[in-house]
Amino acid sequence: MARQLIFDDQQTFLQQLEQLLADGIAGEHLEVRTPYHLSEVEALLGQQPSKLPFFALGGALAGFGGGFLLAALTSLDWPIITGGKPIVAVPPFLLIGYLMTILIGSLASFGGFLLLARLPRIDALVEEQDFDAHFIITIADEVAPCTTPS
């Protein structure tokens, strides 16, 4: 049975977390839930920086290329002259590329977030928890079921 430690106070919670880690419990055996983002936790657990920016970059590049190519290729598909402008009119097509950079970049980041954060989580949809009001540390079973304190 996993053990849950519940705190109301940020300070005590952080101290306890530090203590646990100092006691030799590996970070990967602790699951920490907080009501809001605490960068200290990340530092304590020694987590790798998020890989999300790669998704963003990929999305942005795909968006830019895709946007520009969409405009350029569809214009070339049936070249129709309007206003005497060139068929591939670079400045406005760059604009489409720019907008698609942001759109696809954002959507890719969002998608990447869902992937990395393992959302949606079906099990969590049914479980009732107070994580958003308290600081919770769950210690996995295999690690010393009898570790103390409180």
């Binding site: 699951e31 983002h37 990340e42 987590q47 999300l52 990395l116 949606p120 989580r121």
Partner: peptide, 11 residues
Amino acid sequence: GWVGSSQQWRH
């Protein structure tokens, strides 16, 4: 299914 875990908060 947001649980506020440190993993999720990080991303």
